[in-house]
Simulated assay, not measured.
Amino acid sequence: MELPQQLKANRERLGLTQEDVAQRIFVSRQTMSSWETGKTYPDVQSLLLLSNLFGVSIDSFVKGDVETMKETIVKDAVRMERLSIGMVGLLLAGVACLVGWDLIWDEPVAAVPWLTWGMVVGMALFALCAALAMVCACRVEKLKKDHDLVTFREISAFMDGEDPEAIAHLNPDAFSRKHPWVANAVKVLAGAAVALALGFIIGSIVSSLH
């Protein structure tokens, strides 16, 4: 039996509601509900509290889930790596378009003499690549949020025999976990700033060679 079913079965065995269990292990009812539906997994501390409350071992809770968790970590790590590579590749492609089209098509725009049609096309392609790179970044963050990889790593480490206190650093009370939207916005802005700076530097070098 998997963890969500284990939680529900043990709760009902004791005649407790989700609210009852949540209050006793110091979490919200919504958190308890998400555990029972398999949307997220409890951290090690919560597992210890649940184990004591239900009078069952942690092994019996997560025995069937540990391998699945480890496979999920590996698969999601690969996906995140590919998305990260794709994000960097798209930004570099955008910079290449920004510079390359200016070299290929240097006919000036009539209304704006200093602006070439190549620059117009290059900027449009750069914007497209930057937007796609942003999509990759958002998917990485969604993977981390949906699968709660930090919790998976905690449980995996705990089941490998590590001390819960020694692995507490795997789930820090970090700013990015408390304010995910702010953290994501900072990452996107930082990436865009780096790409634009790189484009400006390369553009300046190319312009000096004309």
Rank of each mutant, 00 (worst) to 15 (best):
V21I: 04
I104A: 12
S208V: 07
V150S: 15
N10K: 05
P108K: 07
L143Y: 14
S57T: 14
A190Q: 07
G100P: 03
V95T: 09
L48D: 03
D43Q: 02
P108T: 05
L189G: 12
H179Q: 09
M123T: 15
M87R: 10
A193V: 13
L196Y: 11
H147P: 13
D163E: 04
G203A: 15
K75F: 10
G203C: 14
H179F: 13
L7G: 00
D148R: 12
T151C: 10
I167Q: 02
D20H: 02
G64L: 07
S46C: 04
V121S: 07
L98P: 02
C138D: 12
A77Y: 09
Q6V: 12
A157W: 02
T151H: 12
V21L: 03
S60D: 09
T72Q: 10
V66P: 04
S204Y: 15
F54P: 02
R153G: 06
A127P: 10
C129N: 08
G191M: 13
F200T: 09
W117M: 11
D146P: 13
T151M: 10
K145G: 04
Q5G: 03
A133M: 11
T31I: 05
A197Q: 02
V182L: 14
D102V: 10
E2V: 00
G122C: 06
A77K: 07
K145H: 14
I202G: 09
